[in-house]
Nucleic acid binder design. Sequence first.
DNA 1: GAGGAAACATACTACCGGGTATGTTGTCAA
DNA 2: TTGACAACATACCCGGTAGTATGTTTCCTC
Lengths: 216, 216
Amino acid sequence: MALGAREQVAENARADILHAAAICFNDRGYVATSIDDVARSLGATKGMVYHHYRSKADLFADVFRVGMEMNYAAIAPFRAMSGRAAAQWRAMAFAHVLQMIRTKPFQRVVWEGVSMYLRGATTPEQRDVFAELQQSRRDYGNIFRDVIARARDEGDFIFDDPGLTEQIMFLTLNSPLFWYSPRAGETDADREILAEQVVAFAYRGLGGVDTKGVAR
Amino acid sequence: MALGAREQVAENARADILHAAAICFNDRGYVATSIDDVARSLGATKGMVYHHYRSKADLFADVFRVGMEMNYAAIAPFRAMSGRAAAQWRAMAFAHVLQMIRTKPFQRVVWEGVSMYLRGATTPEQRDVFAELQQSRRDYGNIFRDVIARARDEGDFIFDDPGLTEQIMFLTLNSPLFWYSPRAGETDADREILAEQVVAFAYRGLGGVDTKGVAR
DNA sequence: GAGGAAACATACTACCGGGTATGTTGTCAA
DNA sequence: TTGACAACATACCCGGTAGTATGTTTCCTC
């Protein structure tokens, strides 16, 4: 569907708000972030934000949704990879970690959204849209779970409880959300080096042994 | 120093508040927790809390401090362990993970306290006491860093950047803070099984190879 | 070019939560 | 016994924030 000039402007405004909101939520967390904060960081006012988003929770949910879409997009090229599952996992995990680094503000919102839902800190109406987002997040997790299960069947990984292992693995892969912050003059190669080390840690943690054997 | 009956009562009240606050902060986070929430969960009122604590930030800091004291106490028996560093790490890591599980509310406050400090979300006065707590937390991290560095020197661990590896390792060891919640009828043996799997993941992630060789 | 709607800004309301000021009751010490 | 203080509860103030109601300007359309 082609957008008219008017619609294009509106979409741009929504995108600007989304981006600014992601940064604010990342900096201060959902509760401590006010709509005025978001508006101020855009050089606009509260009215502008409420013109494009019905509520703070709606805005938050949209950041969540876009963040998850980014994740799916990042691992999409490797979804149908053939060959050993351990190698596929490595490719997916690397893409995932890089995504955590590159789109950190959005991913922190996804993170906080998960814990918010788990604590039940949502109104009944928002409960629906949140449940859908949670499902999306769970599906994403299951993709990885299937791959590491296959890798275990193929003898490349060793672990006990799949559910527990999935949790620990994601915590490791998501760790950049908590210690990464961009350095001045940092290149994308630097980020890839970081991501590679995270993946290596998780790979061995899952029981993978011969790095060269399943080169990515 | 022996406490009089009066002082004992006061200390008990402070301990009650501390415990209730840890649970509230754990459930809702610092910002979303009101002093009324804490008081209500004690069947008391705001006045009672403010009689024993000067401010919300003070209360939070105290939970943080006690949480860190718990951590130091948990790994204390293994601080002066002789033998291979990898085995010492295993003992310390196991105690640490169990501590995360057993005192989760306090440890989540420690966690949030660290990110709060990193975001600079404190008033100048509280900045001092927080800086001290951060130092305590950093020292605690350095204990582990030294041990894994020695284990690497001894050829039991393999990793690149020590600082980065310490971060990833702690994320893994702290992961129960995010996925653990007590089950009905759960025994301490169950918790030890969980902790063992987390330690096993991290141990291998650090490059440890032969579990039997460095039995804990 | 006029009408209308989109895209904002401004002004306002209602409420909540940190902190304080002020009561009230029990307890201990002299 | 009495007075002084600890240990609370109650009442209140005030700043901040989600959300709304109401302007005002710009731009598209007919």
